[in-house]
Each structure stands twice: as structure tokens, then as C-alpha cells.
Design a protein around this nucleic acid. Structure first.
Lengths: 180, 180
DNA sequence: CACAACTATGTCTGAACTGACATAGTCTGT
DNA sequence: ACAGACTATGTCAGTTCAGACATAGTTGTG
């Protein structure tokens, strides 16, 4: 009964041993385009994974009150992960606050809505240039089988998403510009 | 302390009085491109909104064990909604199971990954034709101020999203096709 | 040398959400 | 006349998640 977060952790550990803190750092934006979780959730989930026998750890001395725990995949964890990857993903319900606000936007002042979308567009464009820089640093797309293929493919997804979002914001702004 | 779901319900009620059951139906795909929630959550939230004085209801006889409750916005609810619309949305963390699977895909058999993306592409294309039909039925984009503007704008967002997703799936399939 | 930022683990509360269970009248097609 | 789908409200148990709280050594900056 491993949760999706559990598999996200296994996916990170498949690329190399890490502490819980490191896993949280990898998942944090703008590094992780694939999943996000707070450290508190990660520590809790790591305990579950350890009980399930999917990960193990070696304690090592480090800064902080407790010893740090460097986690690694067990063979069972690796097998479970591989098996999970190609099973069809369950679709997450769409819950997007901006879309909801748009649905209700006809009730609000056009100028304020326009401002909100202008801000959103700026945020998307900032992320876009950031992603484009990351893409350029790849050069050739890594081949399938290379761990970096995962990074490249998810980056490309993020890139496409930001472009679509930015375009939609521009359309909204245009609608509000001519309307008022 | 109204939750986002609360505002989603207020946004639906702003277009006309409805029962909890009706609200759930509006939010259900493929009708609602803006938010989703189960009926159990909606009934719970409606009680909270009523206690907060943002909605009221009139009981009416209907099928079922209890009388049906036709909810409507109160002036306070309407004001709260209007005020909320243009406040900047907090960004939701990215949690997309397919993207996570892609991040880990380098560990799996290319053929199985290819199949998964082929299935995903088919689902996106199906939704795309459905959305395109809905868009065609609009004809001219409704003007801002018309409630249907919200429907049209969110539909356009969904359309852009599906196109971006389909394109990304095609790219993935192409990568897997030449690689194996 | 002081202070801040970073490393590092963990607990706990409350909110949000899912899915199952419970109940029962009405409407539609065969 | 009967079956099945639809209308309609609600509870409950369990999971997921965010954010606060707690603790403390190391590293880098001014």
C-alpha cells in the first residue's frame, strides 16, 4: 500500500543514496519538476518504507542532534518501483485556483482581473527563461536508459506547460484589454 | 477561513441557486473544467458556509429520504466571493503521477513505457475532440461580464492544456520509437 | 567573535480529501 | 409490473498534506 509519495522517494533513491533532507531538497522547486513534498512528510514516509522493507539506511555522524541516516533502496524496493512505473497513472482531479477564479471572473472588476493575469504571466515567463536555460545546458537529449533522460523529459513537460499557461494568460489579458 | 472548495461552491451558486447534488454534478467532469469535489465534501462544506452566513437554503420536497435543500448566496457570500476572485492564487505544488513515472522511466522496459504513453495520448486526444466540440458550440467568445465568459475561458485553458499534453506524449513516443 | 544560514531529524495538530456505507423516493424503458 | 438509473442528503473512517514546533551542530560572512 505504498503511496505515490513513497514511489517518488524510491525514484529519487534509485539515482543514489540520500538522507531525508537531501530528498526534500531534490524535490524542492525549481529542481524537482516531478513531485513536491515537505520534509516532515518525507521523514514519515521513509519510516513506512523502512518498515515495508523497501529502503534501508546507514547511520553516519553529521551535524544536528541525531545521527544522519543515509537511505538506500533494497532489492524489494527497486523491484516494486520498476513494477509501478509502467502501470497506468490514476488521474488526479483538476484543482487549479486560477482556473476557478477565472470561472468566477465575470463578477469582478476587469482591471483587477487584468492585473492578476499580468502578474501570473510575469511569473510564467520568469520560470520559462529559467527552464530554457536548463534545457540549453543539456545540449543533446540524453538517451533512454540514462537517468538524465528522466530529468530532460520532465523538464520538457514543464517547459510545454509554462508556454501553454503563458499563452493563455496573454489571451486573457487581450480579452480584458479590449473589453474595458 | 473559507477554503478554496468553499469559494468554488460560492462561484457555482453565483450563477443560480442549486442543491448540493447539483453542485456536485456541475463540478463533475467533463462539465467542470475548474474544480472537482465529491458530494460528501460538498455537503460538509455547505454546512460550514451556512454557519458562516455565506449561503442559505430553502427546503423543498423532492425525492429521497430528506427534503432537498436549494442553496443560494447571501449578500455576505457574494461580497466574500467578489473580494476573493482577484486576490493572487497561491500556487499549488506540482504533483503529477505521469511526470513522476517519467522521471523514473529510465529504469523500466521501453516497450511498456511506450504503451503507457500511447494510452495517455489516446485519452488526451479523446478529451481534445470533446473540448473542440464544446468550443465550436460557443461560436463567438462571450464578452467579459457574461457568466458564460468563465465557461469559455476555462474551456480554452483546458484545450491548451490537452494540446500541450498530447504534444509531450507524442515526443515521448518518438523518443521510445527510435530508441528500441 | 557574533550572527545567520545551512544541515538534519523528528513530532503534532488540524485541514482537506477519498471512498465506502446508509437511506429512500421518482422516473424511464422494457 | 419490474429493474435499473437517477435524485438527494448525509456520516464515518482513514489517508494525505501543510505548517508549526522542537532541537542542535557546522559552516560561512562581516
Amino acid at each position: 500500500m505504498t503511496s505515490t509519495l513513497g514511489f517518488a522517494i524510491l525514484a529519487v533513491l534509485a539515482r543514489g543514496d540520500r538522507t531525508g533532507y537531501d530528498i526534500a531538497a531534490v524535490m524542492r522547486r525549481p529542481v524537482g519538476y516531478f513531485w513536491t513534498a515537505g520534509h516532515s512528510q518525507i521523514h514519515t514516509e521513509l519510516q513506512k518504507l523502512r518498515i515495508a522493507g523497501l529502503v534501508g539506511y546507514e547511520a553516519a555522524h553529521g551535524p544536528g542532534p541525531q545521527d544522519k541516516k543515509v537511505y538506500h533502496l533494497t532489492p524489494e524496493g527497486s523491484a516494486k518501483l520498476r513494477e509501478w512505473i509502467t502501470k497506468p497513472p490514476r488521474e488526479r482531479p483538476e484543482r487549479d485556483e486560477l482556473v476557478l477564479k477565472t470561472y468566477a471572473a465575470w463578477l469582478a472588476e476587469p482591471g483587477l482581473v487584468r492585473q492578476m493575469f499580468t502578474d501570473q504571466l510575469a511569473a510564467h515567463e520568469a520560470r520559462l527563461t529559467e527552464y530554457e536555460r536548463a534545457e540549453a545546458s543539456f545540449g543533446e537529449p540524453p538517451p533512454f536508459g540514462d537517468p538524465r533522460f528522466g530529468n530532460y523529459a520532465t523538464l520538457l513537460c514543464g517547459l510545454g506547460y509554462e508556454r501553454h499557461r503563458a499563452e493563455w494568460c496573454r489571451w486573457m489579458i487581450a480579452q480584458l484589454g479590449t473589453g474595458s
